[in-house]
Design a protein around this nucleic acid. Structure first.
Lengths: 339, 339
DNA sequence: GGTTCGACGGAAAAGGATTTCCTGGGCTAG
DNA sequence: CTAGCCCAGGAAATCCTTTTCCGTCGAACC
């Protein structure tokens, strides 16, 4: 109703300026139909001159595709979901498909609102990026036939499509690296008992140690994901197991605490004790003394894969199952070979 | 809920099920027109049963508003732009207006693509969230009449609308806090010489010190935004100015380095030297030993203000100028009063 | 009893671009 | 000279919902 002709330039304006009909203008701009080269050029010049940008609202209405996806995330700090977002953007192509970002702040009501809003906008698909490794309940979208891909936190329903990091493999790779560089007395300091990430990593550590024929130094040291816990654990480990020569930590933050704790206990890193963390979180890993070797969860690749799978689901149909992305080990001085 | 149609359900389906015309169904669902309560209820029941969600694509085409904004950001780590995003979401209301998030990765070509894509989608407005305090060149949107608000990094053109933190005021507040808690010999360690944030904070420090009638301990210590620089600076300051009793740092990361450096120089924090940082970045400030008093740049409020101004610009028209949001000081043990 | 008014609901336009179908003119071949 | 064809470009349908403008029916009033 608020009809203003001057505000936005439409294809009608281009057609008028070029002296052709609307349909012809459309064909000229999209390389369709049979037109003289001269006509095509004239229309394109007119469009250029007017700064015409076709409304994707109109074509969406027509074709049913919006070239738009929803990205639901639950992570306020963005430590996990931002890399996922970047990967998704990679997969969606420069700006071909755009993402609506919705931060639910872990509120199911808010999530419902966002989902409804996304469906109203007829997004082509939805990516749900979780904050932790725990499986999350599937989105409830009331029978709407919109493809959904879960990233980082997988869906509890295995008929859904999820993409996750291979945390177990990453932990195993860290241990193998330590073994290969001459470490034999390896301890594992991690987060809360029962946390899904902690569980997966414990499995990886045990697998790799068994393969190397080594015993773990003490049971896994469960605590919190904080530096304080790392410092505390370092003190306890050096006291109870003076022969420890490597510590694998469940996060970079813990590793930083362990690093400080070891120094205060008179151990040098990496000469006496090697250190490996998880997350490869630059501000922590790079500022650590010494810079920290860390298992990168490859979240960007997780996002990229999720984006690709979503596009595939949109264009060709559903690909159920849990897809795993390998971690990659980033080696820094904290795990230099034993002397 | 039986019979979920694979094709999307439109208002025509609802109307058919309720036995009314399409127009009547629309009126029933939107509380318009004159309808018997019974009819209204019947239509609403039909809509409920079919899980009908009206396509905002169609209404956008009709009304010219999409209830959609673009959020252009340039910050890979998200340390600055994520809080801004949250503030923007606050302002945009639960899910009334959704934001397309575009990370340009500092690439002007990419930015161009995103802008074009946003304009094609007929966003109601655009927010540009910068990564640093430096003014940035205005968006080039080829005369399209779309309101733009710049957040955190202001536009170089003062005819644009920008929202920034009052970094100078924040620095002054930090100094005032230190003075009020009994500190007299205050040094200032900050980032690179010439950096806009560093300049603003230096101004704030000088203003507050002058107001208190105090001299600064040495010139501002320019360096980098890293812990290494903080440690180095702490060593230098204690050597050259043994009577220093407080250090104001240009970032939490620097402050952490200073904290470690002071400890290694035999000074206790906060007993001997008080410490204040900037950013209030939880993983650093809270894990610091002791937890760090810090100037919060209030980025969420910056985002909220930007969102509000954008909505205002959309609905009522442009509000040019640079809008300033005050910082807030978050006090933690590192700046406990002098004994 | 006829006229008017209010209540209810239907028909149709609008909004922007694509696409299908169709027309008209010019050219070729028989 | 005429039938037939092809090419360039125009007209109109389409997508989905809202909203305006009417038409109809029942009731009430003079």
């Amino acid at each position: 109703m608020p009809g203003k002709t001057s505000a936005r330039v439409g294809i009608a304006d281009v057609a008028r300026l070029a002296g052709v009909s609307i349909g012809t203008a459309s064909k000229a701009l999209n390389d369709r139909g049979q037109l003289r080269d001269e006509t095509r050029a004239r229309v394109q010049a007119a469009a250029e001159q007017l700064g015409f940008i076709p409304s994707s609202v109109a074509t969406s209405l027509l074709t049913g595709r919006t070239f738009t996806v929803g990205l639901i995330m639950t992570d306020h700090h963005g430590r996990f979901s931002l890399p996922v977002l970047h990967g998704v953007e990679d997969a969606l192509g420069w700006a071909e498909t755009l993402a609506f970002v919705c931060d639910t702040r872990d509120d199911p009501i808010r999530e419902q609102h966002y989902v409804r809003s996304l469906l109203a906008r007829r997004v082509d698909g939805i990516i749900v990026a979780g904050r932790r490794a725990e499986a999350r309940p599937p989105l409830s979208l009331a029978s709407a036939a919109v493809p959904v891909v879960y990233a980082f936190a997988r869906s509890a329903d295995d008929a859904d499509c999820s993409v996750v990091s291979d945390e177990e493999g990453g932990a195993a790779a860290a241990i193998e690296h330590l073994v290969r560089t001459g470490r034999r007395r390896i301890a594992h300091v991690t987060g809360p008992h029962g946390h899904a990430s902690a569980i997966a990593r414990v499995r990886g550590v045990e697998r790799a140690l068994a393969a190397a024929g080594l015993e773990q130094v003490g049971d896994p040291w469960y605590g919190g994901w904080s530096e304080v816990w790392g410092r505390f654990a370092a003190a306890a480990i050096t006291r109870e197991h003076p022969d420890v020569d490597a510590v694998f930590c469940g996060s970079d933050t813990i590793a930083r605490g362990v690093s400080d704790g070891l120094r205060e206990a008179g151990r040098r890193v990496p000469e006496d004790v090697a250190l490996v963390g998880v997350d490869n979180w630059a501000p922590i890993a790079e500022e650590c003394r010494p810079p920290l070797t860390s298992v990168d969860l490859n979240l960007r690749e997780v996002g990229r894969t999720a984006g690709k799978l979503l596009l595939q689901a949109i264009e060709q149909g559903h690909t159920p199952g849990v897809h795993t992305v390998p971690c990659k080990l980033v080696v820094r001085p904290s795990s230099a070979p034993a002397l």
